[in-house]
């Protein structure tokens, strides 16, 4: 079923271009260390060369005979090596040049390398949040939508409560208190604020599907509940689940950039958001240093476009009314 779904996605021009764009970003993220000319957080290039090496005479410390055919000796040799080390510091806030195609930042880090490596973080945070939230909200939706009863009341109530809490302020509040190590806390914060909407949407889809005749017919021949949920209902939700996954991933990428940009995230991580944060903290926009703030901004927008295009395609596939007439 999922294979069929992707087959139809590829046939649609919009979603195909979205998938190609997303695929490009994923490739960049995977091969980031190979593509980036420098490590992202370095501000210098160091060259060390060995000039000469002197080897002294061996000095015997002990000698002993072990058995008939075995002898053991211990001795030291002193070697002196002479090195030359040149450290070339990158210029800070440099304009694009041959060495640094997108210039450098205030600390002298190569911006092109940062952007390449940042793709990794941004994309990982986005897709991981998307996956996590989709899993959580799908499970909640199936539980509450199919089983109903008190469980449904509780889950719906909590969902609705979270739905009315404004997301961004909540993210900022939590982000300020949570100690930041790596990107995991950011993923959790983003997940916490983005699960309610997809949960509600998927739940209503489950409610519609569970009353469809084919589910009732399967119940009539004696199928178990687990079969009804996973084999009858779930396969019919593929397109809406995928669409939710891409929507959540998109909002997570934007959310991550926002958090980092306002300095609530982990500013020691290199991501598109933190590049923007440092750019704005160092007045890049005032100075007109477009090479600093424009590329990460553009890339965030492009990734967003990729997700939106894929979703357009899914819409056209699953909603016959939008199909080309």
């Amino acid at each position: 079923m999922i294979r069929d779904f992707f087959k139809t996605l590829i046939k649609n021009k919009k979603s195909l271009s979205g998938l190609v764009l997303l695929g490009f970003f994923i490739l960049v993220a995977l091969f980031a260390p190979l593509l980036a000319p420098y490590p992202p957080k370095t501000d210098r290039v160091e060259h060390t060369t060995l000039l000469e090496e002197n080897k002294g005479d061996p000095e015997v410390l002990s000698e002993e005979t072990e058995g008939q055919n075995r002898e053991k000796s211990v001795y030291t040799v002193t070697i002196t090596q002479k090195y030359e080390k040149t450290t070339e510091y990158f210029p800070t806030r440099a304009k694009p040049s041959k060495d640094h195609i997108l210039g450098t930042n205030h600390a002298g880090n190569d911006l092109f390398s940062q952007i390449i490596m940042g793709t990794r973080v941004s994309l990982f945070v986005g897709l991981a949040t998307g996956l996590f939230v989709t899993f959580i909200s799908l499970s909640l939706a199936l539980l509450s939508g199919y089983l109903g009863g008190i469980l449904d009341d509780v889950i719906s109530f909590v969902t609705n409560v979270f739905l009315v809490i404004p997301g961004l302020p909540l993210m900022i509040v939590i982000g300020t208190y949570v100690p930041m190590h790596g990107v995991l806390p950011i993923i959790l914060i983003l997940s916490l604020t983005s699960w309610p909407y997809p949960t509600r949407l998927l739940r209503s889809q489950v409610l519609t599907l569970k009353n469809r005749d084919f589910v009732r017919a399967s119940k009539m021949i004696g199928e178990r509940t687990s079969f009804l949920i996973f084999r009858e209902i779930l396969p019919n939700m593929i397109s809406i689940v995928m669409s939710e996954f891409f929507t959540v991933s998109l909002s997570a990428i934007l959310g991550e950039a926002t958090l980092e940009f306002i300095g609530v995230g982990n500013i020691t991580v290199v991501s598109w958001g933190t590049i923007l944060y440092w750019a704005q903290a160092n007045g890049a926009i005032l100075m007109g240093a477009w090479w600093w703030f424009l590329p990460p901004g553009l890339l965030i927008a492009l990734t967003g476009t990729a997700f939106v295009l894929i979703n357009f395609g899914i819409d056209e596939i699953s909603n016959p009314r939008l199909r080309k007439r």
Binding site: M1, R212, D213, F214, V215, R216, A217, S218, M220, I221, G222, E223, R231, E232, P235, N236
Partner: peptide, 28 residues
């Protein structure tokens, strides 16, 4: 057993006729 009204809604669109029809034999 029951025959449902809407032939367009009572067969799961994601299953083949085989996988729909073999279920009662398997379950029972």
């Amino acid at each position: 057993q029951m025959i449902f009204q809407d032939p367009f809604a009572s067969l799961n669109p994601t299953h083949t006729i085989r996988s729909i029809l073999e279920r009662p034999f398997l379950i029972h």
